[in-house]
Write a protein that binds this DNA or RNA. Structure first.
Length: 480
RNA sequence: CGCGGGGUAGAGCAGUUUGGCAGCUCGUCUGGCUCAUAACCAGGAGGUCGCCGGUUCAAAUCCGGCCCCCGCAACCA
């Protein structure tokens, strides 16, 4: 067996705090949590990072709109996101807020390094400004050259001077990085997408805003008139959370070194460019190690449609937990489909799956075994190496749906085994066989509990406890 | 020629990288069981793998062409 590295680092993206926690983010963080718990079980020291992205124009506007102090507004939202820890039984070790002082300092430091290496320059550029909206408009937001909300008004052209990041200088370096690590982005199709994006050529992008127009951001080092564009600041959280630049020991241990990158990132497909190109270029520009691997998840649709507020079909993590419980929600979000693909959900389908797999499947099997073995004293053995090489490979690709499918094969086999051996008859006429049959079922259920612990931690504990105490238990109540 | 994803049983999907018996879950039909949460087990029905052509002993899978759906630009991961 080859010697494995003892430290594991995983981070989600940081949700932007201008809306309630989204089911897509819940799915992302449950995947990350499952992986983090899994690695911990394999004996690694784990840092699992998440947090909130709190700067930028939209938040500043939203707070103004509501007439509340911006800091107060973000404090409230950050707390809402931190509530997910309990709601979804998450095991994250770090919760970083981009308004944390340490983070802001780190963002300024990475700026200084990128600047010192010659990758930041100042440039005047023209922006289109709609007086009706009192907002800057990008070309993609325009309809026939006019603001869609104020089509009668001419757009004003304003010249603004901002700082730019020399993204264009990183085309070759990024392609080299992609070439050298063939699994850098998973799934492959997303990797192909970002490769061809970088191959087509990169454009420098603006990384600051005039403070006079929008003050809610990290001040640019050496220029009091500008604040950082939110992306530049936000991406830095993945390393500021480790105490970078002050705590270089911790940083190298978890984030890794240039020769041995160690950081696993998970993100939604809307974040492909930011995470796998922009952020990597920023790291290269600051002469820091890149990420090790980036997993890109698909989107969740409802009944074949996009989930959106205007359609009124939004399913929130909170509602799911109210209906299916913590582990029910975790299970349903883990098995909803192949990692990286867009997955379709609906209350109807989720309820059917909940009843079939959790109530009728695992829950009912647990009841059967506990009841049948009520009066027996069975041997308890500790599980060792409960995950085989195949399961490890699957979890490392976030194919957790397939791992769970394999666990559920044991449930099916055991139901069949009970049917074939008829222990309720054996208990009356063949004590020895009865005991042997029940011992096997006990061992299997104990194994299932072990295998479930990273994914459905609460259920895992409940099963173990029920086996021990022989107390009858309804793991998952059927839902109508 | 903007970029990308998809079309496989009534529904939802896997399988396509590396060609080799068309598979899973739900639903449905028939039968069985009574330990269990009206749960469980067995068997059955149901598919021209979007269409046309090519390569091959062999194509859902590889190649060429075509049709249709969806996402990316407005709340939104």
């Amino acid at each position: 067996m080859k010697k494995m590295k003892k430290e594991f680092y995983i981070t989600t993206t940081l949700p932007y705090v201008n809306a309630e926690p989204h089911i897509g983010f819940a799915s992302e963080i449950i995947l990350a949590d499952s992986r983090a718990r899994f690695e911990k079980l394999l004996g690694k020291e784990v840092i699992f990072n998440t947090g909130t992205d709190e700067h930028g124009l939209k938040i500043w506007q939203k707070a103004r709109e509501l007439g509340v102090d911006t800091q107060k507004y973000v404090d409230e939202y950050a707390a809402k996101f931190d509530d997910l820890r309990e709601m979804l039984n998450l095991s994250y070790t770090n919760f970083i807020r981009t308004t944390d002082k340490g983070h802001e300092e780190a963002a300024r430091e990475i700026w200084r390094r990128v600047d010192a290496n010659g990758y930041i320059y100042k440039k005047k550029y023209k922006i289109k400004y709609c007086v009706g909206c009192e907002m800057e408009k990008t070309d993609s937001e325009l309809a026939d050259g006019y603001c869609p909300f104020h089509p009668g008004k001419e757009l004003e052209i304003i010249e603004e001077e901002n700082y730019f990041f020399k993204f264009s200088a990183f085309q070759e370096k990024l392609l080299k990085l992609y070439k050298e690590s063939p699994d850098f982005v998973v799934p492959q199709k997303r990797f192909n997408e970002i490769k061809s994006f970088v191959e087509r050529g990169l454009e420098d992008f603006s990384i600051s805003r005039l403070k006079s127009k929008m003050s809610w951001g990290v001040p640019v080092p050496g220029d009091e008139d500008q604040v950082m564009y939110v992306w530049f600041d936000a991406l830095t959280n993945y390393i500021s959370t480790l105490g970078w630049p002050n705590n270089s020991e911790n940083f190298e241990k978890f984030w890794g070194t240039i020769d041995r990158p160690n950081a696993i990132q998970i993100a939604g497909k809307d974040n492909l460019r930011q995470q796998s190109a922009m952020w990597q270029a920023m790291l290269l520009a600051a002469e820091l190690p890149t990420s090790k691997q980036i997993f890109i998840n698909g989107f969740i649709g409802v009944d074949g449609q996009k989930m959106s507020k205007s359609l009124g079909n939004v399913i929130s993590p909170k509602e799911m937990v109210e209906k299916f419980g913590v582990d029910g929600t975790r299970y349903l979000l883990l098995i909803k489909g192949t990692f990286g693909e867009d997955n379709d959900i609906s209350w109807e389908k989720m309820t059917a799956r909940y009843n079939a797999d959790l109530a009728n499947g695992l829950g009912n099997l647990t009841s059967r075994v506990i009841k049948l073995s009520e009066n027996l004293s069975l041997k308890h053995k500790e599980n060792r190496d409960i995950f085989d090489v195949e399961s490890i490979r699957l979890v490392e690709r976030f194919d957790i749906d397939k791992v769970l499918e394999n666990i559920w094969k044991i449930v099916t086999e055991d139901n069949k085994y009970i049917e074939d051996t008829k222990p309720w008859e054996l208990s009356k006429n063949n004590e020895a066989n009865f005991k042997a049959v029940m011992q096997k079922l006990y061992d299997d259920l104990n194994l299932i509990a072990g295998k479930l612990s990273p994914f459905l931690p609460e259920t895992s504990e409940k099963i173990k406890k029920a086996l021990e105490t022989k107390e009858r238990i309804i793991l998952f109540e059927r839902i109508k």
